[in-house]
């Protein structure tokens, strides 16, 4: 790996330290805001553990920042389908997240069959499948199948949404 990419990655990892630190401050402030009279039945109270967790987060944040600045690096996770040679492919991840968000926005209004189809079809598209029609048919079938499967098999009524009355 060239020194340039490792430098960039090092700086990105400082973001992790920042996140840990911010989480620590958040946990501390939240616990500090709790009002609790001292009680004999609960000498520890609801604040103690959050304070410890906040402390742990902040200590980890500081140590991680020091570690990264000294050249320490987290080892990215490998896997069967993972090739770490190239940088993160945001052109795949962002549309994938987009399909996911679209599902969140649609699910209560349009219903699972529509939003699930959008999710699966959109994910396939984002992941590079180019069989638009075949993928579309599979998406619709999968959504319908899970809708009825959950309803008939498990007694869980997923929202029908716009298709209320048709399904």
């Amino acid at each position: 790996m060239s020194s340039k990419t490792s430098g960039l990655k090092g700086r990105a990892e400082l973001g992790v330290a920042l996140l840990l630190g911010a989480a620590g401050v958040l946990v501390f402030l939240d616990a500090n805001g709790l009002s609790t009279p001292y009680s004999h039945t609960d000498p520890v109270g609801p604040k103690t553990v959050p304070f410890i967790v906040a402390g742990l987060l902040v200590v980890c944040a500081v140590l991680l920042a020091v570690n990264v600045l000294r050249g320490g690096k987290g080892e990215a996770e490998g896997g069967e389908d993972v090739e770490l040679g190239h940088p993160a492919d945001w052109k795949t991840v962002l549309p994938l997240a987009g399909a996911f968000i679209l599902n969140i926005l649609l699910i209560d209004w349009a219903g699972w069959v529509i939003s699930g189809t959008v999710l699966f079809w959109g994910s396939l598209l984002a992941l590079g499948s180019r069989h638009y029609v075949r993928d579309g048919i599979i998406s619709v079938l999968l959504s319908l199948l899970t809708f009825y499967g959950f309803y008939l098999g498990l007694g869980i009524a997923l929202p029908a949404g716009l298709l209320e009355g048709i399904l």
């Binding site: 999710l119 994910s123 396939l124 499948s129 869980i156």
Partner: peptide, 24 residues
């Protein structure tokens, strides 16, 4: 094919998490 595999994981993850409380 990998697109089907990972789209499927996302699809079923969404379905599973949503069906617990039916909350977006």
């Amino acid at each position: 094919p990998r697109p089907y595999l990972y789209a499927g994981i996302l699809f079923f993850a969404t379905l599973g998490a949503y069906s617990v409380n039916l909350q977006a």
